[in-house]
């Protein structure tokens, strides 16, 4: 599904290399997790993959189902099936959540040459998705993320994921700022979307989210590279011993 080869990325504004040769392959239907200490480049990887400004790819490649995504505009990547659940979802005053979701869904359908969904059909569709995430009608009507609590914002990200139905979902520290109940709700939302044709890349600091979203593979990232790859037990090792041991082992 997602294939990243020798990816080198620096900040556009300053001469600072953030990613120094990331190699990563996430096959279809699999859940991979990336863990790593602060500043290891985890969030940068998610931003570069989704097409945010401010980063320059100096070497390497990233493909989604064999298609080079690094030259695509962010909206083209979305239409190709890539989705990033933001660590800090953005508030957009004046744009209703429902309008936003319908605009986004129909933009993607249009880009893929599919028919747009009517307002009536969309309403039914979204109500069903929202119910599962305990998102009420009021949250759908309010401006995007404005006045939402931390948990509500993250649930709203998962709702967008459910509505847009991407193939490759990247979750950037979706667990940050969530209490146990909210984390469970979010994890249930993600698990409900697990499917043979859909892959996940779960970026997290802590092992606890991975208790709820069981990964197939865990990668450890440090200093702009994947330094270790293993099964779910690797996450437990981090939980028990921290990153220091693993990093020492590498050195």
């Amino acid at each position: 599904m997602l294939e990243i080869k020798n990816l080198h990325v620096k900040l556009e504004e300053e001469d600072k290399q953030i990613l120094k040769g990331v190699d990563l392959t996430v096959p279809a239907g699999k859940v991979h997790a990336i863990m790593g200490p602060n500043g290891s480049g985890k969030s940068t990887l998610s931003y570069v993959l989704s097409g945010r400004d401010g980063y320059e790819v100096t070497e390497g490649a990233a493909t989604l189902e064999g298609e080079d995504i690094l030259d695509m505009e962010p909206e083209e990547r979305a239409a190709a099936g890539l989705f990033l659940a933001f660590q800090y979802p953005v508030e957009i005053p004046g744009v209703g959540n429902m309008t936003f979701l319908r605009t986004a869904l129909n933009a993607q359908r249009k880009a893929r040459g599919e028919d747009e969904m009517s307002a009536g059909d969309f309403l039914k569709f979204i109500r069903e998705k929202a119910k599962a995430l305990k998102i009420d009608g009021d949250m759908l009507k309010r401006p995007v993320n404005v006045g939402f609590s931390g948990g509500e914002k993250k649930r709203n990200e998962i709702l967008q994921m459910a509505v847009l139905g991407p193939k490759m979902c990247i979750l950037d520290e979706t667990d940050s700022g969530l209490d146990v109940d909210a984390m469970k709700l979010v994890a249930d939302g993600v698990n409900a979307l697990r499917d043979e044709g859909r892959s996940f890349l779960v970026i997290t600091h802590y092992q606890r989210l991975l208790d709820h979203i069981q990964p197939d593979v865990v990668h450890i990232m440090a200093d702009g590279r994947i330094v270790k790859t293993g099964g779910p037990e690797l996450a437990l090792e981090v939980e028990n011993n921290g990153y220091a041991d693993i990093l020492a082992e590498m050195a």
Partner: peptide, 15 residues
């Protein structure tokens, strides 16, 4: 707002 613009685009809305 560039952040809001990127957020919308990342959901598939054309620039």
């Amino acid at each position: 707002d560039d952040e809001a613009l990127f957020y919308l685009r990342s959901r598939g809305v054309e620039k």
